[in-house]
Design a protein around this nucleic acid. Structure first.
Lengths: 197, 197
DNA sequence: TGAGAAACTGAGCAATTGCTTGAAAATTAG
DNA sequence: CTAATTTTCAAGCAATTGCTCAGTTTCTCA
């Protein structure tokens, strides 16, 4: 008697199943990149992943869960880099900017599509916690480099940086000189904010 | 003999029909605000507007057209303000920032939802032209206030401003002091950019 | 080897979607 | 008034959606 009915998601144990899970998530990523969000449906994901629709629902309770899984996969990559940078001390800010840019341009269309997805529905607590940690690390690095600043000023700087990197990822700004541009925007704002009351 | 079959949209001539059109667009806006984009479908729009689904399709060729119409309605309001400000000369930058903020906070959820919509599918040439004009006016005002600057620097400043206003509209930044914050971010960036090569 | 567990299949359902259509009601013109 | 035109109505279709389930295949391990 198997005990896994209440939550329709089953945890894969065999290697084959783990690969299937990854293939499903990656298929969703490719469809988002190539055809956009409106074209993303479970039937297409399964077909693209090379598995049947039934298999998909063995591991993901619903369509939403696939997207959450994909978002987590992407964020985990960036978060790992940021955690490593946190120890740098020296050129931590530049390293952080460089990592964000590298991550954004690794798969620009995917990054853009996922940002739209994230804003559409609030993600679960696990994924939200990762977003929170990214923001915390970012403003922590800024706080360490610039003097005592209001929390809102640090957040503003983070938003400026994120906004510019995203815009560049969508082709609105040239990648050439992007790191310097972002760095200039963040530093000039924080310096100015430090001078004001 | 009526000649209007090729394009399924009919131009309303009676006052009653014009009001119906407006009611449809406004219904779409309210659904976007209250239930989000995923809940937006033509049947619901018609119901909410108090008309039948057949009436809706007499004036809009498809669902997309309703959204384009709504986006245009919203942009037209902002664009009119910006055009008027263009003549100010004096405190044009501050006025522009104030207008953007006022527009964003008039119906914050609608503004946020429409921004997501705009990014999902590229809008028609008419609506794209309005976006272009808004950007042109904005960077024109900046260019006039700050010396000779690269086009990308002006665009960057516009993106910074827009990003912060949007973020505030979504509750990420306090509305209190927002105009000063945006102004500070734009000015400090442009001053710094003017000093660099 | 063989039995039980894990993984996979795909036909197909219930619900929803965007949209058509043929006729009724309201408005205007003569 | 009547007749032509404009506007409105709503049943319902064709397609798509997310998802279920009964059955088959593949793997694990004694």
């Amino acid at each position: 008697m198997t005990s896994a009915l209440p939550t329709p998601r089953k945890t894969p144990t065999q290697r084959r199943a783990i690969e299937t899970c990854a293939a499903i998530v990656e298929a969703a990523a490719r469809i988002l990149e190539e055809q956009g969000r409106e074209a993303l449906n479970t039937n297409r994901i399964a077909e693209r992943a090379g598995v049947s629709i039934g298999t998909l629902y063995q591991y993901f309770p619903d369509k939403h869960a696939i997207l959450v899984s994909l978002i987590r996969r992407e964020r985990e990559a960036l978060l790992a880099e940021l955690r490593a940078i946190q120890a740098h001390g020296e050129a931590a800010l530049q390293a952080m900017i460089a990592a964000s840019i590298r991550h954004q341009f690794a798969r620009p269309k995917l990054a853009a599509a996922l940002e739209l997805v994230e804003r559409s529905f609030p993600l679960g607590p696990e994924a939200a916690a990762m977003a929170e940690e990214i923001a915390t690390i970012s403003s922590g690095l800024l706080a360490q480099r610039f003097g005592a600043l209001a929390q809102d000023d640090l957040l503003t700087a983070v938003l400026i940086g994120r906004g510019l990197v995203n815009a560049a990822g969508e082709g609105l700004l040239p990648r050439q000189g992007l790191a310097e541009r972002v760095s200039l925007a963040i530093e000039s704002y924080l310096c100015a904010a430090a001078r004001q009351p």
